[in-house]
């Protein structure tokens, strides 16, 4: 998990702030839940990720300011988790296809291959039109519906090739 993302290039100096006042408010709402600001790191990264579909270094710096941390602390935590992209925003739909054992037994890997082939991208990539990011996932915890796929907030259950094609069409 930790070495997922290659080290991103140094950011261009940004004059405008990436975190909007609304995002800052959303993050601040987490402060009373924890005895210190460090613990707000993951909630804050989730807020940024939900709005921007990635967490560029500039956002890391701004989150660190807000949490009264050094940017390296936030980056250290962020880089451990596989969820946060840093180089470019993910697609409008980010779809995770499960490849763990229960899904693999029911065609999960073939489903991911099929989707990648149709969308003409590799796992981890985003389509040129920015509509879809495809990724493999380790167990999505929906093994009774193998093979399954989580697309943003929606769990797609027992996905056949036809359903996969329909999903791609619906984007």
């Amino acid at each position: 998990m930790p070495t997922e993302n290659p080290l991103p290039a140094a950011p261009e100096p940004v004059s405008e702030r990436l975190l909007t006042p609304a995002m800052v408010e959303e993050i601040r709402a987490f402060f009373p839940r924890y005895p210190n600001r460090l613990a707000v790191t993951l909630p804050a990264l989730h807020v940024v990720n939900e709005h921007l579909r990635y967490v560029p270094l500039q956002a890391v710096v701004e989150v660190a300011e807000l949490l009264e941390l050094h940017p390296s602390q936030v980056q250290d935590t962020l880089s451990f988790y596989g969820l946060f992209k840093q180089d470019a925003p993910g697609g409008e739909v980010r779809a995770w296809v499960c490849r763990s054992i229960s899904c693999a037994l029911r065609g999960g890997e073939e489903l991911l291959d099929h989707l990648c082939e149709k969308a003409q991208i590799h796992p981890g990539e985003t389509t040129a039109d920015g509509k879809l990011t495809l990724e493999y996932a380790e167990c999505l915890g929906a093994c009774e519906y193998a093979p399954c796929m989580l697309a943003n907030q929606t769990l797609h259950k027992s996905v056949s090739k036809e359903q996969a094609d329909a999903f791609l069409k619906s984007l």
Binding site: M1, R33, L42, P43, L45, H46, F80, Y81, G82, L83, F84, A137, E138
Partner: peptide, 13 residues
């Protein structure tokens, strides 16, 4: 008692 939901970020460990 207060209960808060805290979301992880995709790490088995």
């Amino acid at each position: 008692l207060d209960i808060y939901l805290h979301r992880g970020a995709a790490a088995y460990i």
